[in-house]
């Protein structure tokens, strides 16, 4: 069931995404997607990998088209929530992590393999020894509020 968002810009072709089992689906209505790689210990645990890659959006750009009520949240740090699908375990959304209303969608959940603009690496102090960063993108100790999500 679609949860209607009256702020959506319907002139844009949306990006769509879902969890692995398809119980939860969403659309991101933006011209293009910015993303960051996060190496913090919580992302590592939440995703089972060396880092997470999150595509960024504001609430006015997101429409839930299926299963929004299924989202199961875990408060991984004060005020920061990680929402996942209780059927297949896929992490769908992080919010509250940067002190504003920006939403972060794990990039692996987005359909069709669209291009992302990777803005940089976050929490690189926590990088594990078994992964090496091989590019020259900016590295940040923390996640600045509003970073990457305020444009469309």
């Amino acid at each position: 069931m679609t949860v209607h968002n009256s702020d959506i810009n319907h002139s844009l072709e949306p990006f769509s995404g879902s969890c692995l089992c398809g119980s939860i689906k969403f659309e991101i209505h933006r011209k293009y997607l910015n993303a960051i790689h996060c190496y913090c210990g919580m992302c590592r645990k939440a995703h089972g990998t060396a880092f997470s890659t999150h595509a960024l959006a504001t609430p006015s750009q997101v429409q839930w088209t299926e299963g929004k009520s299924l989202l199961t949240g875990y408060e991984s740090s004060p005020g920061a929530y990680r929402e996942f699908c209780p059927v297949c375990g896929t992490h769908i959304l992080v919010h509250g992590q940067s002190g504003d209303d920006s939403l972060a969608f794990p990039a692996g959940t987005i359909n069709g393999n669209p291009a992302l603009t990777i803005l940089g690496h976050m929490y690189t102090d926590d990088l594990v020894s078994w992964y090496v960063i091989n590019d020259n993108l900016p590295q940040h100790h923390q996640w600045p509020p509003g970073f990457g999500s305020n444009d469309d």
């Binding site: 995703h47 990998t49 896929t90 769908i92 990039a107 959940t109």
Partner: peptide, 14 residues
């Protein structure tokens, strides 16, 4: 694709 969906990341590490 399955590891990318399940992890939400660029790849799985298993």
């Amino acid at each position: 694709n399955s590891c990318r969906k399940a992890s939400g990341s660029a790849h799985g590490a298993n």
